[in-house]
Design a protein around this nucleic acid. Sequence first.
DNA 1: TGGCAGATTTTA
DNA 2: AAAATCTGCCAA
Length: 186
Amino acid sequence: VRAPRPADFARPTVEVARLLLGGVLEHAGAAGTVAGRIVEVEAYLARDDEASHSARGPTRRNTSMFGPPGHAYVYLCYGLHVCFNVVTAPRGTGEAVLVRALEIVEGEDLARARRRTRRRANLANGPGKLCAALDIALAADGSDLSGGALRLHLPRAPLEPAQIEAGPRVGITRSVDLPLRFRERV
DNA sequence: TGGCAGATTTTA
DNA sequence: AAAATCTGCCAA
């Protein structure tokens, strides 16, 4: 994997979403570092996407979604779960990629301590679960993912299209038919 | 100002 | 199937 470059975000959000697959999200904290390979993402767009938080313009919560690309958009879902996104389109646009699932590749013991589950596969196979495993908090909202404690790494070579499965997004009720969910095929 | 739906997860 | 319980939107 490699560090992200500005050019990585100078392309449509759907392409960035596909590029994130096979990348690594890493959080270095006081207790240690936990990192996971990105295996499932969803794109949220600014136009013709009623499921996107940006669909009705900027609010206090989604401010960072309209911020610079390559930064984090972290929000609270259903009042208790933290969800992590990578902001994608240029400043002011309002697009992001939700990271839905990781496969833990570093710091598994620490991840297990933070997550009450026996099965390795369940450590980070959901947007709220992965934030718990990596200890991503709302304080990370708006942070630059190329430099601080929370880092994004992109694959040196993007996944082949045949390795990516596209389909409808999960847990939404509007714009349900858009194929904006991408998963690494097993 | 109040009610409700929501990019979820866990337990019964 | 339901609870936990924050944020934003829309109706009074």
